[in-house]
Each structure stands twice: as structure tokens, then as C-alpha cells.
Design a protein around this nucleic acid. Structure first.
Lengths: 118, 118
DNA sequence: TGTTGACTTAGAGTTAGCTCTAAGTATTAG
DNA sequence: CTAATACTTAGAGCTAACTCTAAGTCAACA
């Protein structure tokens, strides 16, 4: 499958796919005789996986670490789990901050309700 | 008060203060005879206000809109309130996304717990 | 007098994650 | 045969919100 088809299938632009390869997120992508990238079913899974981690708000650098661990095989399961557990803390902290922000804005809105009434 | 003192007081770097002035967040900053900025007590309140909005996760562009409205006086209270209410929606959506992310990661951790045990 | 230090400006650099451009090659359709 | 299209690469550009640099002015101190 060429980059255009793969791009449509994964909903990731060809530009971004090349970028992911450049920064080492996509490794050992097959090439045809003329040097064009040739993607496989495995690559679909892999990009799907990257997308899921991204959706979780994980940075590409962290995803790369994860990718490296995964490449090393089953022996790194524990490390990958730890990486995810670190990310839980990140997301939990973010939620806390957002909740506080929400409170603050609502207080400010209350203030406006008061001064607008009077 | 010169920029250094003001910077220390507000905990905003001199660089950033100049930047805020450039993008129109800080308006009509007084100058001394030699062209140096001279900040007042009002400016302290104003920067405090900007910081609070920033802490709420509001973008500088939105804060600028808010600033413009505030400059126009009390007649814009309703519009400012609306601006904040829009931001409530933004923050609520963010919290929802983060909560879903948290769920997803925890599921993935559960998966690792299973495969590591066996 | 000279040097230290604070200030000024315009504009470049940084980070993340793309997004796009330019210049070139190769394949395919009419 | 030629025009359109898809691909390749290196590298520039984008956005947000700074952050820093260079080059210069000016006042105070030893």
C-alpha cells in the first residue's frame, strides 16, 4: 500500500507519516524498487496504537520511548506499564488543575451576575 | 516603578512584560523622560488580572478581547460575562476529554497487569 | 574617565507537532 | 509524446507564548 492509501486508511496525512518516520516513531518501513514507501497491515496496527497514545495526551517523545520498549519484546512489559502509570499521574494532575480553573471562572461569573443585577 | 521592580513584584519577566505590551495586552504604559517604562499600582492589578485569566487556561487572544471590553467600561459587563461563560464550556470539555483519557490508560494498565501475571 | 548596569528596540530562536514548499524523478493516461 | 499525478528529499514555515540576542542609549559610581 502506498503512502496515499495508507494515509486515507489511518487518517494521518502523508506529511505527518513521513514526519513520524523521521523522528523515529515509525521504524523499518518497507520500500518498493523505486524507493516509494510500502505500508503493511502491521503498520496500520502500529499507527493505530500511536494514535491511541496521542489521544491519551501522551507526548510524541514518550510515545517514542514506548515504541522503543515495545520493539524490544515482551521482556519490557513491566517498563511499559510503568510508563503508562506515570502518564496516569500526569492526566490526574491535569484534571485537578482544570477543575480548579472551572471553579475560578464560575466564581467570576457569579461576580458578574451580581454587578449586572444591581 | 521601573520594569525590573515591576517584574519582581508581579513575577512576570521583563521580556514577557514587553511582549504583553507589544501584543496589546498592556495598554498605555507610562514612560519617564528617558523613555523607560514606569509602572503604577493600577498596572499591578491589571497584570494580576491577566495572570488569573491565564491560570484559568484562557488564551492570550481571548484575554486581549476581554481587555478591550474592560477598557470600554461598565457597559461591556454582559459581554465579558459571556466570554467567561464560553470559557466554562471550553474547560468542561477539556475535563471530559481528560477523564476519558484516564479511563483508557487505566484499561491499558489492566491489560498489562494480566499479561505480566501470566 | 571608564565601566557597570539598567534600560531601549527590532527581530531571531525555542518547543511541539505538524504542515507546506521546492525541486526533482517516475509512472500512467490520452 | 506530453501532461497529469504520485512519489521522493531537505528544509522552511506555522502557532502559542514566550525567551533571548544584538546593538545601542543613558545615568551613576570609583
Amino acid at each position: 500500500m502506498n503512502i496515499k492509501q495508507f494515509s486515507e486508511l489511518t487518517q494521518v496525512s502523508a506529511h505527518t507519516l513521513r514526519y513520524y518516520e523521521k523522528i523515529g516513531l515509525l521504524k523499518q518501513v518497507n520500500r518498493t524498487a523505486n524507493g516509494h514507501r510500502s505500508f503493511t497491515a502491521k503498520d496500520i496496527d502500529w499507527v493505530g496504537f500511536i494514535k491511541r497514545l496521542k489521544e491519551m495526551g501522551m507526548e510524541l517523545k514518550k510515545i517514542q520511548q514506548y515504541a522503543d520498549l515495545r520493539e524490544q519484546g515482551d521482556s519490557t512489559s513491566e517498563q511499559r506499564k510503568q510508563l503508562l502509570e506515570e502518564h496516569v499521574v500526569v492526566v490526574e494532575n491535569r484534571i485537578e488543575v482544570e477543575a480548579r480553573n472551572l471553579d475560578k471562572i464560575k466564581q467570576k461569573i457569579q461576580y458578574y451576575n451580581k454587578i449586572i443585577k444591581n
